[in-house]
Design a protein around this nucleic acid. Structure first.
Length: 633
DNA sequence: TTTACTAAGT
């Protein structure tokens, strides 16, 4: 402790080794206010405990709880709260707020109930916080009860309470509530930005993008939250390009982005694989360091963005520099390496995480198991699955079973995979059967595939994709009749199938290609490039795998159809529009087919380009004729 | 003589 020349503040006294009682209780709240961090609050708190000072009464307890809540230290806040004999409304309000903030909304409601039982009168603050808890819990029934109590109590809602009510209804997963929110909105003559933001976020949540946009455009005063809401709303609705355009508009407006906007924009970058934009945001964040903009969430988003854009090493650099990490951060980095097929790195990070004392949650195990699946580590997968249940008491969710089916199925243990599905305590969903169906395709097992397929169409009768996959399986097994039948059914039942599409970002512009797309402004050149690719691949001895095409067409046409897969168009455009040796990054919405996979390997060699393809499941880094997935995906 | 509303990372 360096010698201090100025008078020590109250909360510094204990550091001088002399626990001191604050004599005048009236001064205590002021003393608490001077605390700048958790440690100082703790010191003051300790003084009360040591000196036997009665915290109850006055405003001391409330202020202490408030300090802990504002410093996100809910357990200390709770211990103070529970030490009070008869907490007042302020103490209740603050702890209710803190519990929701700390993600324990259910406990908030319990304390609200206790508060009522004790005869305390809830005020506007109470209702605001309780409604927030209801929003978190997505519990309409409780929300409605609170709403009616507000009405019965004759409380006239102020702006805060009003926006909480609207938020509760607008963001409930039951889309009927949108109407309630809308009615409350129109009943209230003064409409402020916060309320409109809530309404917009409700519309976006239910996919009414157009209405949301109109409301947003009509806003007189947009704030940072309005912009963030739009950016994240577009991202959640899969409209990544629009998300980006809005973000750019915001950067040009006079409203500076805050942490949330940047997090939303980074999430759009991650989905879109827009590495350059992501880097730009990273540089922007770096410039702002010192203004307190870089928080745990933002840094985690950066790691996630790099991982999902295929730059796992940059992501890891950010990760290593982070002063603190929570379980989400670890989840991001582990699933990042999992997507890149680097299972052993995932295992090391998992051990490191345990060593820092962070308890893994269910998501961490999904990441670890998916790493096992991508790398083909069957035994490790079994071990982690058991460890999760036995050592950490995590009940396996449908996702975990999905990973296990995937691990076993991909590795060819189809019977065991099917047994696992049958033994599941929960009813298997379409993801589970889908994983088995996919594995049956990889390992040519049409009979088992048929069983999986039948279960799938019971669950998702309108998914044409499943019929398509089944038809692939029959084609590969040489059962042409059945394959054709599947395709006929897709037509007859007018089922929707997901069309293959790929993105490539060149000079900040997103170019999207569908299968056989001719709509691009440079389509002529792209198709000429495809011809050139075909010529060079042929010279290098490439033979297309025609069994990948199920259409009932001539052999030559099949080859033609394969060469127009969306990822090939995107790569052709990449070769065409970037300088020699520039890395090409492509994002595809489905899995890469075997034929394209072998073709891209060869393209990387013949054209001397590193090509990174992110497909539905993972990354493929093609370089010098090889792929990072070692042909296992 | 205290507390609020919106947006955000696996």
């Amino acid at each position: 402790m360096p010698p201090s020349h100025s008078r020590p503040k109250v909360n510094e006294l204990s550091l001088l080794g002399k626990p001191t009682v604050v004599k005048n209780p009236a001064r205590i709240p002021a003393a608490i206010r001077t605390c700048r961090n958790l440690r100082e609050v703790g010191q003051l708190h300790a003084q009360f405990v040591i000196s036997g000072f009665i915290i109850d009464g006055h405003r001391t307890a409330g202020k202490l709880i408030e300090s802990y809540v504002s410093m996100s230290h809910i357990s200390n806040a709770l211990s103070v709260f529970h030490s009070i004999h008869s907490p007042d409304a302020f103490a209740y309000n603050t702890i209710i707020r803190g519990l929701t903030q700390a993600n324990f909304p259910y406990d908030s409601l319990l304390l609200y109930q206790q508060m009522l039982l004790r005869g305390l009168i809830p005020d506007n603050y109470t209702y605001t916080f309780v409604l927030k808890a209801c929003s978190h819990l997505n519990s309409l029934f409780e929300g409605q009860q609170v709403h009616s109590r507000i009405i019965k109590a004759g409380i006239s809602p102020d702006t805060h309470l009003h926006s909480s009510l609207i938020h509760m209804y607008a963001t409930n997963s039951n889309s009927d509530c949108l109407g309630c929110a809308q009615r409350i909105l129109s009943d209230f003559s003064v409409q402020n930005t916060v309320i409109i933001n809530s309404m917009i976020s409700g519309y976006l949540r239910h996919g009414h993008v157009k209405i949301a946009r109109e409301m947003f455009d009509g806003m007189v005063a947009k704030d940072a939250a309005s912009w963030s809401t739009m950016v994240s709303g577009y991202t959640k609705n899969g409209m990544y390009v629009e998300a980006f355009v809005v973000f750019r508009e915001m950067m040009m407006s006079h409203i500076p982005p805050n942490e949330s906007t940047l997090v939303s924009a980074l999430s759009a970058c991650a989905q879109l694989g827009a590495l350059d934009q992501g880097r730009w945001i990273h540089a922007f964040v770096d410039r702002k360091i010192g203004t307190g903009i870089t928080t745990l969430t933002l840094a985690t988003s950066l790691v996630d963005m790099y991982a999902k854009c295929g730059s796992i090493n940059c992501g890891f650099q950010v990760f290593e520099k982070m002063p603190q990490r929570d379980v989400v951060t670890w989840g991001v980095i582990i699933s990042g390496f999992a997507m890149h097929g680097q299972a052993s790195k995932c295992f090391r990070l998992f051990d490191e995480m345990l060593a820092t004392g962070i308890r893994p949650n269910a998501v961490i195990f999904v990441a670890i198991l998916s790493a096992c699946s991508h790398a083909g580590y069957v035994e490790a997968g079994r071990l982690y699955f058991n460890q999760m249940v036995q050592d950490f008491g995590i009940r396996p969710s449908i996702e975990h079973y999905g990973c296990m089916v995937d691990i076993l199925g991909r590795a060819g243990h189809l019977a065991e995979a099917e047994e696992l599905i049958v033994s599941m305590p929960e009813e298997p969903n379409s993801i589970i059967w889908g994983a088995l169906l996919g594995a049956c395709r990889t390992h040519n097992d049409p009979r088992r595939g048929e069983r999986a397929f039948r279960r799938l169409i019971e669950l998702e009768p309108m998914s044409g994709d499943r019929y398509k996959l089944a038809s692939h399986i029959f084609t590969a097994a040489g059962e042409k009749e059945d394959a054709i039948k599947m395709r006929r059914l897709i037509k007859e039942k007018e089922l929707e199938t997901t069309c293959g599409s790929s993105f490539i970002v060149v000079d900040g512009v997103v170019h999207e290609f569908m299968v056989g797309d001719t709509g691009h402004s440079e389509a002529r050149d792209i198709y000429m490039m495809l011809e050139e690719i075909k010529r060079r691949l042929k010279m290098a001895g490439f033979v297309a795998r025609r069994d990948q095409v199920l259409l009932d067409i001539e052999e030559e046409e099949k080859e033609e159809a394969l060469s127009r897969h969306s990822e090939r168009l995107a790569i052709a455009y990449g070769l065409l529009s970037t300088k020699a040796k520039t890395l090409i990054r492509v994002i595809k919405n489905l899995r890469v087919c075997r034929d394209c996979h072998s073709a891209i390997k060869l393209i990387s060699k013949e054209f001397d380009r590193e090509i990174i393809v992110r497909d539905k499941n993972r990354f493929h880094v093609f370089k010098g004729g090889e792929c990072s997935c070692m042909d296992y995906w």
